[in-house]
């Protein structure tokens, strides 16, 4: 009985939120796989990936000015609130944090991972990197290999997707005009049929 009583005294108190061991957390910090490239995130946005959950950590006014499609705005100081943790603990979702750079997302990632939020990632470079890579026109001459060319083509297509920039939409309108002519040509055929 004395031994059991001592055991109860020495046993740690039950914690409200499950915590990750600091050494495990340090090991997770060294994992590069916790970063997702802006190209990968962009690809998943365009594909409407249902497992992607974007968390925008920027101020509300910046979020209202522009945010990635489908992103949810969460302020960094509420990253560990009950409602946020409920959102972050959704099963089957890859939660991708981003702000303007990496720094805020990095801190939010550490706190989330400390409290055992799984499948939590950071968009490498943040929205500034996304903008500079995807939206700003790149130099196509830098494409040295077919893989580079594919990446360049993907970014051009993604740029059009997000901004409408480029000449592709105008070309589509000029191509559509001849189709109207084809429809009108059918009228004389009907008139000749009626002259019986």
């Amino acid at each position: 009985m004395i031994v059991l009583a001592l055991g109860l005294v020495v046993l740690p108190k039950k914690k409200e939120m499950k915590e990750t061991d600091p050494k495990v957390l340090l090991s997770a910090i060294t994992e590069k796989s916790r970063f997702l490239s802006v190209d990968l995130v962009t690809h998943r946005i365009i594909e409407n990936d249902p497992t992607l959950l974007l968390i925008d950590l920027r101020p509300v006014n910046e979020f209202k000015a522009f945010a990635l499609p489908g992103a949810i705005n969460i302020q960094p100081d509420s990253i560990l609130s009950a409602s946020t943790l409920e959102l972050l603990n959704q099963p089957g979702k890859d939660k991708v944090l981003y702000a303007n750079s990496d720094l805020t997302a990095e801190k939010a990632w550490l706190l989330g991972t400390r409290y055992s939020v799984y499948r939590l990632y950071i968009m490498k470079g943040g929205l500034n990197e996304w903008y500079n890579t995807i939206i700003k026109p790149g130099d196509a001459s830098l494409a040295a290999s077919s893989a580079d060319l594919d990446l360049s083509n993907f970014r051009n297509a993604a740029r059009q997707y997000f901004t409408g920039a480029g000449q592709a939409p105008q070309e589509q309108t000029t191509k559509k005009t001849p189709e109207k002519v084809n429809i009108i040509r059918k009228a004389p055929e009907a008139a000749s049929g009626g002259g019986c």
């Binding site: 500034n128 903008y131 997000f162 920039a165």
Partner: peptide, 29 residues
Amino acid sequence: SSTEAMGLDTATMKAKPMLTEISKTEKKK
């Protein structure tokens, strides 16, 4: 760009809703 200062030109990004409106009228023709 490595700080939390916003380097995004939001005016560029607002072009997308305009494009969708244009494409809708083109489809009606």
